[in-house]
Design a protein around this nucleic acid. Structure first.
Length: 867
DNA sequence: GCAAGGTC
């Protein structure tokens, strides 16, 4: 019998490598693929077997709505709650599905080594589906390895105790995905359309809603409310002073502070009449400040924001880079407890020769380090620790700051606690108690490596019980309570963690989202100050349905799907139940939106009052307003219609020309810069493409295109297949793009640096410079079917004989034109296009005609689209 | 143009 092959799949490449290294004892053969595959021989369930260990890269699929529901204008968001959902490959370019399918061929067994949490369980079933292992046979051939850490001991133990994947847990994740998608998208689309259709200065491309991002914003705005409604209160306290050995010592009052001045004055009078303090009690207590437990992601993010000045997104990027370069361990972990097998000595040795803290670490190694405090072990990854020694020169300033903290924190966890003596002296005067405290550090412990956490030394003079001391000064202090400050990122992370909003990996994303959507701004000290938009949204929810922004909305979803995970309630019933509730909330929200709108009206300016008149509407022939703030759009006040425009460029009127299809005035969109481009568009056609099937084409452009059009790309004239319009692709297209399946289109306003640009990729082609005019004609080249162009050269620089200026020809077949043409692709290389005499075959880098037929002449412009 | 969750 042939040796059976066992396919093993981990959640990420690094885990696949660790598992393979342990099981093969380092004797494996590694080959590349979509993700690496490690192969070796060994024993499996008592038989000789060939192993292949590979990985996915997180989730293989993500949920979305079918194409039919993608069109915002054609779908009522309410229908989304009952719409079907489909799973698409999250990262189609990575080809993980195909990779697993190929690797699974000929394998008799599948072992799932995904992370041991709900998401991991869900990915198990994604892997089963992708690899083609029949679900019916799952009992026989599919195994789940449950490991609590990626160590030799745990990996071997998991191999000896293979179980089945847990479908209930996986279904709970499916439920969460569907609920989050439907709720988030429905509310987002409704809010966005409603408010963007009315106001011109909201300054956010999309008015998003989500069960995590909205409560996140809610925390920031609630703090804003607290600050705003805060009423300062005056308070009074008594501070007697005594002179001891030449310096003044301030005593505290046993009553701390009072909010009544008359009462305080009464006490002041009483103690002042006495004027003599008697020492009544001297106590001393040993106090201890504990060393930190292991560093997890959330705590790293908090310190990074509050002490190092890095936002969560930035901190994660730095940490990831340090991880891939091998300087620190895996930076995404919830655990604060080290696994029992953790090699403290090895890790300490790794950072022992560092000039900054080397001596201290040497001391720990020689005199013995401390056992770290027990934290929580979530079973994902060990706490974040240094792996290699590094210097600032090696890493650069910012990565070094983060690395340094990781080192200090790790060393801190195996250092002694900080010990200090706390001394309290109590006095009595006029029947009132006063006191002073001092502290003296006896063991610095971990604070010598984390000095910002050090306990302050505070010396007290010697006192004797019963001693009587004269008061040198009596102060009646008047203070005032002060409002809290705005939430810092670090505070916000704590709130999110406490309320179960987001995960260690997604917390930075949510914070980034509310800032990108212009709901909050990060100000000095990494404080999150809500914007008018953010405040107005939360106040609106408060009026209509506070559940929508309170953190309970997340815990409700979590608690519902936990019923699925435990196998207590059927997946379908839970999803239906939860969606039913959100649907009701949605309907109510829509019904009451005017309450929220009243707030918007007070804060923002209506479309009618925004923007400047730019171009004429094709329906009413009146001028429409151009609103340049995000998202750029045109608003026709008469028709009360909004027409969205492309982003990240400038818009102006295009020679007062109109679209022959709908009479709207054409606009010219330009991206500035040397590699910029400009193209005409009709504001109506742009959002309402007049030809059937154009949607697929625009999507193709989105996927493979330059991206410069922005995600919401519509149909500019260069994609329009209109047969007679002088601005369409048919009229302005010249020939097939040499780099992709697009068409090179004449940029009509690029004079004097005339150019063609591809309507699908970054390819740019420079035409003869300095020409007075270059235009397309209706003629086609008989040889290659490209559009014949007409060039009117400058009199002084014309390359034509006898000073002639007019030249007509094909840029591919006309020797003169072809020699004057230069190609530039994206930002990279500039090169002379296919030189003369080399022929025009399908050689890369030269123009070619892409044909479907066998040498049959095909219109290059029509060849890439199959209308 | 939408969510939140993996991971790169």
């Amino acid at each position: 019998m042939a040796t059976p092959t066992v396919l093993m799949v981990a959640e990420k490449p690094s885990i696949a490598l660790s598992i393979a290294s342990v099981l093969s004892r380092g004797q494996m053969y590694t080959r590349r693929g979509s993700t690496e595959v490690h192969e070796f021989g060994g024993m499996f369930l008592g038989f000789h077997a060939q192993f292949k260990v590979t990985s996915v890269i997180g989730h293989i699929f993500s949920v979305d709505f079918p194409v039919k529901y993608q069109d915002w204008t054609a779908t009522d968001p309410l229908d989304l709650f009952q719409a079907p959902v489909i799973k698409n490959e999250s990262n189609p370019k990575a080809h993980i599905c195909r990779h697993l399918n190929q690797e699974a061929r000929g394998c008799g067994h599948l072992v799932l080594w995904l992370d041991c949490d709900r998401e991991g369980e869900n990915i198990c079933f994604e892997v089963i589906e992708s690899s083609g292992f029949s679900v019916n046979e799952a009992r026989k051939r599919v195994y789940r390895a449950r490991f609590s850490s990626v160590t030799e001991k745990d990996i071997l133990k998991a191999m000896d105790n293979l179980v089945e994947p847990n479908r209930y847990e996986a279904l709970a994740v499916d439920a969460r995905q569907e609920i989050d998608l439907k709720v988030g998208v429905a509310f987002t689309r409704f809010q966005t359309s409603y408010f963007q259709g009315k106001y011109g200065n909201l300054d956010s491309r999309v008015i998003s809603y989500g069960p995590c991002q909205t409560p996140t914003l809610g925390f920031c705005v609630q703090r804003y409310f607290q600050i705003n409604t805060f009423k300062p209160e005056k308070f009074w306290t008594l501070h007697p002073y005594i002179m001891e050995k030449g310096y003044e010592l301030q005593l505290e009052w046993g009553r701390n502070k009072l909010f009544d001045k008359d009462v305080t004055v009464m006490f002041e009078k009483r103690v002042s009449e006495d004027g003599i303090l008697e020492v009544t009690e001297i106590s001393e207590k040993q106090e201890s400040k504990s060393r930190p437990s292991g560093l997890n992601t959330v705590n790293l993010l908090k310190v990074a924001s509050s002490a190092l000045g890095f936002g969560p997104q930035m901190a994660m990027q730095l940490a990831e880079r340090l991880y891939t370069q091998g300087f620190i361990s895996y930076p995404r972990t919830e655990s604060t407890a080290y696994p029992s097998s953790f090699d403290f000595r090895g890790t300490l040795s790794a950072v022992a020769n560092n000039p900054t803290w080397g001596n201290y670490v040497q001391g720990l190694l020689e005199n013995g380090y401390h056992k770290p405090r027990s934290g929580t072990d979530v079973g994902d990854h060990p706490p974040i620790t240094p792996m290699l020694s590094a210097t600032e020169d090696m890493l650069g300033r910012d990565p070094w700051k983060l690395y340094q903290y990781v080192c200090q924190h790790f060393i801190g966890t195996v250092s002694p606690d900080c010990k200090y003596l706390r001394k309290k002296v109590e006095f009595s005067m006029g029947g009132e108690t006063f006191y002073c405290t001092g502290q003296h550090v006896t063991v610095k412990g971990f604070t010598s490596i984390m000095p910002w956490l050090a306990v302050n030394e505070k010396n007290l003079p010697r006192f004797a019980k019963g001693e009587k001391i004269e008061v040198s000064k009596m102060e009646l202090y008047e203070g005032s309570t002060s409002p809290p400050d705005y939430l810092t990122e670090s505070d916000l992370i704590s709130h999110m963690e406490k309320n179960g909003i987001g995960t260690d990996a997604s917390i930075p994303v949510h914070i980034n989202n509310i800032s990108e959507r212009n709901y909050v701004q990060v100000q000095a000290g990494r404080k999150l100050v809500p914007t008018t938009l953010g405040i107005t949204l939360i106040r609106g929810y408060q009026l209509i349905d506070p559940d929508l922004f309170l953190p309970d909305i997340r815990s409700f979803i979590e608690q519902q799907i936990t019923l699925i995970a435990k196998g207590q309630v059927d997946h379908f019933r839970v999803v239906q139940h939860v969606l039913q509730q959100f649907m009701q909330k949605y309907s109510y929200f829509v019904k009451k939106i005017e309450n929220m709108d009243a707030l918007f009206e007070a804060q923002f300016s209506s479309l009618t009052d925004s923007g400047r008149s730019l171009s004429k509407c094709g329906k009413c022939l009146r001028y429409m307003k151009y609103i340049s703030s995000q998202p750029p759009r045109l608003y026709c006040g008469t028709c009360e219609e909004v027409y969205y425009l492309p982003q990240k460029g400038t818009i102006k009127l295009y020679k007062e020309l109109t679209c022959p299809l709908d009479n709207f005035e054409l606009l010219l969109f330009s991206i500035p810069g040397p590699e910029g481009r400009s193209y005409p568009l009709c504001p109506y056609c742009y959002s309402n493409p007049p030809f059937e099937g154009i949607e697929t084409l625009i999507r193709a452009d989105k996927m493979g295109g330059s991206g410069k059009l922005g995600k919401g790309a519509g149909m500019p004239c260069f994609l329009c297949p209109h047969p007679t319009c002088p601005h369409s692709l048919v009229a302005q297209g010249v020939c097939a793009c040499p780099e992709c399946s697009g068409t090179l289109v004449l940029d009509p306003v690029s004079a004097p640096k005339w150019r063609l640009h591809c309507n699908m990729c970054n390819c740019l082609v420079f035409l003869p410079e300095g020409a007075h005019r270059i235009s397309t004609t209706q003629e086609r080249c008989p040889e290659c079917d490209s559009t014949i162009i007409e060039v009117d050269f400058n009199k002084k620089t014309t390359p034509l004989e006898d000073g002639a200026t007019l030249h007509i020809g094909c840029i591919l077949c006309d020797e003169l034109l072809h020699s004057l043409v230069e190609m530039k692709h994206g930002r990279v290389n500039m090169r002379r296009m296919g030189s003369r005499g080399r022929g025009r075959g399908a050689r890369r880098g030269s123009f070619r005609v892409r044909g479907r037929g066998n040498g049959k002449k095909v219109d290059p412009k029509m060849s890439f689209r199959d209308f």
